[in-house]
Design a protein around this nucleic acid. Structure first.
Length: 732
DNA sequence: CCCAAGGTATTTTTT
DNA sequence: ATACCTTGGG
């Protein structure tokens, strides 16, 4: 046997610190790596895999590494291959959904699916639920489909099937159970599965097929899990099943960054890891390579207020750095303008826009920032919103494709039967739905039967017949075409472009056309290696699954160098030299709805911790005194989390303009504004003149030297931050 | 089938 | 404030 010391493992261990090395080279036993923010979590995972393969001589074939997002999975794969210098075939790296999907494709028969099964995204699912509920004759007001969808997904996330739901004679539960059961039957008939079903079905597949389970347990000796604190009950059960008694998991996570309890993640999983898997080695990564000392002090102090933590304290050897800046804004416009002035300053000092992130609690807050950034001609990108494969026109085209693969896909049928409008109205469609319900047929078969029985009015009958023929014709014509030709054919035969051009005039319509063209390019660029992720599928099915599982980038291609705007949730895992943590007001952050329960408040606090630890060099926190929300003016208190940050690491920016002060003439140098003369030569209360903005009064001065800046309240233009070096103010 | 008016809800998001 | 959906009339 080769001893480890004789082997050259330096490239795997050299760049690691002690606990990282300990984790990477640990013996086979359940391992929980508590990886603080910026402590090299992904690096440990990647190096662990390299260690297994190159030192322990483990076959890549027996490694399974699971993440939550495609982005994380892709990055993991990329970095492993980079470190090993070769691609690793046979290793399973993917998301929970991606890997479950692969299992189901391989074993579709055992999983009681049809071979061409398709995936419903949440939007498809909601439509399906709505349709089922309409079929049950439920009033939308009384029974909101959104809630039913939520209920179904919750059940599935907990591994619960309709037959095991105990209704305790409760009307609501009984009704929801019926909806769940009916929905499941409809999905089964249509050959579609939703996201939660994908996980549950693959879990049941393994659980109910002992040989299969044994096969995979024997294969995957090494199971690695990323972001372990985000696992829900179903994902956790999936992991435990695959681990069995013999395969010790290697889990990496951070209980302090658990921010998804509201969607089913259980922080208990990471807290109780050592009880479920024994004997556990717990390794803490506390050295932070991202932020300066002051930022870490703020983060540590805030998170220390949570109870029941596994306990970590981040530290760095890179010095204290800048203080955390705190700006108390008058309102959201002031907040945005101040941020913009700081961004301009950053760039003046040679920084880049892409170094900067503006973070907020809820998407609604992005608006003011967007308009202020526009004003300042600063390039930016807003994260979130519709992704490529979620756009209506794209989904339409994909549904046509899906119908050619499986005529009984009711979700797709329902979506495109009158899209573009071809004279098949609600009444006609309702007839088809009813007929399908009564005879337990798919919509396709129901429509066919009704056409053949001449049950429609002649006009409707012709229209429906036309639709059925269209799908059949397309299906035959595209058989031998390449994927991109198939997509092209679908788009032209369906006449979607003409429809959208007419429906959405101007830029909107044009955008949709561009997206459809982009879909053709996407098809062109879609390749899969047969032994890869989409094994055992034909091209078209593989492409459709890819579209559902990876909904694509949020915005096509925005400019490279731009300021990033996103929610705190979206920022997890990212880092930026300059971070604005905005809207730090009680009621907004922590959100009103989280203040009543301790556990919810703690999750908000973790979110705050996530926000603070995004910053590398400079963190600017801001809150407003008044904010317009939902049309009402709110006067919020500064966030309670602010009080948890030690004042020693904070530089408060003042004075600020109070609401009432704005309405007075600040110009008549009142004693209140008599500031000290500083090196900038600018006095607070000083009347000045600017070439573009006219006359105004200096109301704040900060910074020094070349980047000293003053806030000037202009008589006509309102208040602005100016860098004195450029502004060329004339003292009056 | 299309458009306008009125009612309603409005944290966070991945797959 | 506002976006989204339903509903009623042309």
């Amino acid at each position: 046997m080769t001893t480890i010391s004789s082997m050259d493992v330096s490239h795997i261990l050299d760049q690691l610190n002690k606990p990282q090395r300990e984790a990477v080279s640990a013996q086979a036993q359940p391992i929980l790596v508590l990886a603080g923010a910026g402590s090299g979590k992904t690096r440990v995972l990647v190096h662990r895999i390299a260690w297994l393969i190159q030192v322990e001589k483990v076959s890549p074939f027996s490694i399974l590494s699971v993440t939550f997002t495609n982005k994380a999975a892709n990055e993991m794969r990329f970095r492993i291959e980079q470190l090993l210098g070769s691609s690793v075939g046979g290793m399973w790296v993917g998301t929970f959904h991606g890997l479950s999907h692969r299992l189901l494709r391989r074993h579709w028969q055992e999983a009681n699916l049809i071979q061409a099964f398709q995936i419903l995204d949440s939007d498809d699912q909601l439509r399906m639920v709505t349709r089922v509920m309409r079929g049950l004759g439920l009033d939308k007001k009384e029974w909101p489909p959104k809630q039913a969808q939520w209920y179904i997904n919750n059940c599935k996330d907990e591994g619960i099937r309709p037959q095991s739901i105990e209704d305790y004679d409760d009307k609501t539960t009984r009704q929801l159970r019926i909806i769940y059961a009916t929905y499941e039957a409809a999905c089964q008939r249509a050959g579609v599965i939703d996201f939660a079903e994908m996980l549950l079905r693959s879990l049941e597949l393994l659980r109910d097929n002992p040989e299969l389970l044994q096969h995979y347990q024997q294969r995957f000796r090494h199971i690695l899990i990323d972001e372990f604190q985000d696992t829900n009950a179903l994902q956790y059960a999936w992991i435990r099943l695959l681990c069995g008694d013999q395969n010790p998991p290697f889990a990496v996570g951070d209980d302090d960054q658990s921010i998804y309890a509201w969607r089913g993640a259980k922080i208990e999983h990471i807290q109780q890891f050592s009880q479920h898997f024994t004997p556990t080695a717990m390794i803490k990564l506390e050295q932070n390579y991202r932020s300066t000392g002051n930022i870490l002090k703020a983060a540590n102090a805030v998170i220390a207020h949570n109870e029941g933590r596994l306990g970590k304290n981040l530290w760095t050897d890179r010095g204290e750095g800048e203080l955390v800046h705190l700006y108390s804004a008058f309102n959201e416009l002031d907040e945005a303008r101040y941020s913009v002035s700081r961004i301009e300053e950053w760039v003046d000092q040679g920084g880049h826009y892409q170094d900067i992130a503006i973070l907020y609690r809820s998407n609604a807050q992005s608006r003011v920032f967007e308009s202020s950034l526009n004003e300042g001609a600063i390039p930016y990108r807003v994260y979130g919103g519709l992704r490529f494969f979620e756009r209506a026109e794209i989904k339409d085209a994909l549904c046509y494709l899906r119908l050619t693969v499986n005529r009984h896909d009711d979700a797709s049928f329902d979506r495109v039967i009158n899209q573009p409008t071809r004279g098949i109205g609600n009444k006609t469609v309702e007839m088809i739905r009813q007929h399908s319900r009564h005879l337990a047929l798919s919509f396709w078969d129901a429509a066919k039967a009704l056409v053949e029985a001449n049950s429609f009015t002649p006009r409707a009958g012709n229209a429906v017949r036309g639709f059925l023929q269209l799908i059949n014709t397309i299906a035959t014509e595209i058989i031998d075409l390449s994927l991109e030709e198939q997509v092209e054919k679908i788009i032209s035969a369906s006449k979607l472009k003409a429809y959208y051009l007419k429906k959405d005039k101007g830029e909107v319509g044009q955008g949709r056309i561009e997206n459809l063209n982009e879909l053709i390019s996407a098809a062109q660029g879609f390749h899969y290696r047969p032994d890869d992720e989409h094994a055992d599928m034909d091209f078209l099915t593989a492409f459709l699954s890819h579209a559902a599982l990876e909904s694509g980038e949020g915005q096509a291609k925005a400019g490279n160098d731009c300021v990033q705007l996103m929610t705190l949730h979206a920022a997890k895992g990212l880092e930026f030299p300059l971070v604005f943590l905005t809207g730090m007001e009680d009621g907004l952050f922590p959100s009103e709805r989280s203040t009543s329960e301790q556990s919810k408040l703690e999750e908000e606090r973790r979110l705050c911790y996530v926000g603070i630890t995004r910053a590398e060099k400079q963190l600017v926190i801001s809150y407003t005194e008044q904010r317009r929300l939902y049309g009402y003016l709110n006067y919020n208190q500064p966030s309670r989390f602010l009080k948890e940050i030690p004042s020693a690491v904070v530089h408060t920016i003042r004075p600020k303009i109070k609401a009432w002060q704005r309405h007075f003439h600040l110009s008549k140098s009142s004693p209140k504004w008599k500031g000290t003369i500083n090196e900038t030569g600018m006095n607070i209360g000083q009347r000045v003149s600017h070439a573009k903005f006219g006359e105004g009064v200096v109301i704040d001065v900060e910074g020094a030297g070349k980047h000293a800046r003053a806030q000037v309240n202009f008589d006509l233009e309102g208040s602005k931050w100016l860098v004195l070096h450029y502004a060329n103010l004339q003292v009056l």
